[in-house]
Design a protein around this nucleic acid. Sequence first.
DNA 1: GATGTCATGTTGTACGAACAAGTTCTGTCT
DNA 2: AGACAGAACTTGTTCGTACAACATGACATC
Lengths: 258, 258
Amino acid sequence: MNLFDGKRPLYQKLAERLSNDIQQGVYAVGSLLPTEAEFCAQFNVSRQTVREAIRQLTEIGLVSRHQGVGTRVERSRLEEGYVQRLGHLPDLFQYVKDTQRKVLRTADVVASKAKVPLPGDPKLKWRVIEGLRFRENEQKPIAWTEIYVHPAYATVTGAKDRDRYPIYSLIERRYGIKAQTVQQEIAGVAIEPAVAGLLRVPAGSVGLSVQRQYVSTNDEIFEVTLSIHPADRYRYRMQLELDYSPGRGVPRGESDLG
Amino acid sequence: MNLFDGKRPLYQKLAERLSNDIQQGVYAVGSLLPTEAEFCAQFNVSRQTVREAIRQLTEIGLVSRHQGVGTRVERSRLEEGYVQRLGHLPDLFQYVKDTQRKVLRTADVVASKAKVPLPGDPKLKWRVIEGLRFRENEQKPIAWTEIYVHPAYATVTGAKDRDRYPIYSLIERRYGIKAQTVQQEIAGVAIEPAVAGLLRVPAGSVGLSVQRQYVSTNDEIFEVTLSIHPADRYRYRMQLELDYSPGRGVPRGESDLG
DNA sequence: GATGTCATGTTGTACGAACAAGTTCTGTCT
DNA sequence: AGACAGAACTTGTTCGTACAACATGACATC
């Protein structure tokens, strides 16, 4: 077996060779690869070269290594996938930075009466902040919003800087609860009369509804938001990039016909 | 400077030390770190140890390395962010696997006459495939779709298995063109009469419009799709997870008021 | 059969040496 | 001043050595 073609480093060629062998089933998923010493002998290269080649395979998730055990094949091929990256959660609100918020009302609402499904006890009272969002120097709102805060964290709604920072951010700061997951659902809606009035659009006109659930590391939903946008004032844009992230779980976006 | 605490490898302690120094501004972003030889002398460790420590910093994106130049500080701290991962593009079509497609029409359309903006020469004729999507055993369509294929790749629309695989997949197989980026835009729409009739909903009823552009590695848009869904038959769901991906660019989702 | 000890095997860490490959700097010539 | 060649510098690759740390298997004992 000749690895030398003078163009690429040995360890890279070896990594490729091993990757191909794994993909073709020479080494079954779950099985142990030959040891470093065996590869050194087989390919007549140094241990360092073998180690670097295998390290690259671990980096992409094909194999795993344990001291005293050996190198185990974890998967037979890479899975490429598409990924949307956002820097911080404000990026999820694609208008936050260039808009102003106007709070209309803060109240306690029984979960069963909320405009969005709230988890847990239907009798629980969540704190709701209702408001509008405007672009700078514009009269027509681009969003009507309701932010539902779990009662355990409702005190943040009284914070002085409540209107300067997102609620989830205040919750994180005060309670150390961080949104590990954000569930989002987008739908077309006919805007109901009360909200339509506030948004200055005819009742029943077309809108885009965005619901979000903020889930903590303990799988606890601590905040739920609903925003309604007039269709002619807002579209939701996203960009997905091809990525070769190693073997992390790939959550499925799922449709639901409600 | 004592790196030995007997618990963790030297290179890890050194990586941590350098990471802290970078974060505290000892080495400014954009500047070159001391050379390997200088670190070896400063910390009295081997070159291998220095290299491994710095390799770990490159892995998380804090620094970059160029032969003959040195090690440059790229950023002073890690940024956590949120990420949505999809396995494959079919996952983007959140109904593809459990639905059936019915092609209504295949034609050539001048770009200027298309229902979606198409890039390039307005006189160019794109191949369009118009169709409906049904859930298994259901009569009412959940989507009306148009797929626009750049004329350079239009032959795939005649392929035998055209209806079994996504068009972008056929393009990739035949031309080796892969979607590096997918731009997606979601909006609420009032469904126009012709489409409403096909979807068996009243004209003007609320729908969700999803437009997608498939961009190749050469920044060429080779496919554009438009799908219209009755609002009561489809919602778009997504899940974002907190991630600590290293310093890759963070594309912004952006809003547009159309 | 269950448990403990020791030997063997395998990967992990750290050191060193030598040379290759790419970049930057310096000196010379026009 | 600008162009070119060579030297010096810096990282990249490959080899080797030695020992540590962990896992597994073999064997002895109860």
